[in-house]
């Protein structure tokens, strides 16, 4: 991953309106950079799912300022790199890790099949997640999702996800 310029960042808890504000700024920036509609839509999808994931799972620990939700979007020569971090309850890690490893093991058609079987069988949770966000990120990124879990204490870890959207030859 080449080092680039951070074009968007956010630190701290997210409200729904702030997600909209960040998305609008991203759209304006990508318009300014002359990106085509498909690149913009891919970046948009990856960003929505990453930010909504933070929004739904911001298991914030009140006095911990080191592990607050964090979002950055970086522009590199051939790609945009999205990085999103939030704290997560330790007991949720195995299921999430399994999901991430599964999408990383699949190609484009495999992801389409998984999306189809998930949407046809899964129910939407009370938080609005349909278990589809991670699959959607993998579908639009066309790259493996890089992730990490850093244990903070007995109950929480800090989860980070990195997604790359290629924009080479797509202007």
């Amino acid at each position: 991953m080449d080092n680039g310029e951070i074009i968007l960042n956010h630190k701290g808890p997210l409200s729904y309106e702030e997600i909209g504000f960040l998305l609008n700024r991203m759209t304006m920036l990508l318009d300014k950079l002359g990106m085509n509609v498909t690149t913009k839509k891919k970046a948009y999808s990856a960003m929505v799912e990453s930010l909504e994931n933070i929004y739904k799972h911001q298991d914030i620990i009140a006095d911990d300022f080191e592990h607050v939700p964090l979002f950055t979007m970086e522009r590199c020569d051939e790609s945009f790199c999205i990085s999103a971090s939030n704290s997560i309850l330790n007991h949720k890690i195995p299921a999430l890790k399994e999901k991430l490893d599964r999408v990383n093991s699949l190609d484009k058609n495999g992801l389409k099949d998984l999306y189809k079987s998930t949407i046809l069988s899964g129910n939407v949770s009370p938080k609005g997640g349909a278990g589809l966000g991670i699959i959607n990120i993998a579908k639009v990124s066309e790259n493996k999702i890089v992730y990490s879990f850093k244990q903070m204490n007995d109950t929480h870890s800090y989860f980070n996800i990195k997604v790359t959207i290629s924009h080479k030859n797509t202007k």
Binding site: K41, Y44, S45, V48, E49, E52, I119, L120, G122, V124, G128, G129, A130, L132, G133, I135, N136
Partner: peptide
């Protein structure tokens, strides 16, 4: 013009 993954379930 855009729908998130949770919306796609309901559109379906």
């Amino acid at each position: 013009t855009y729908f998130n993954s949770a919306s796609s379930k309901f559109l379906l």
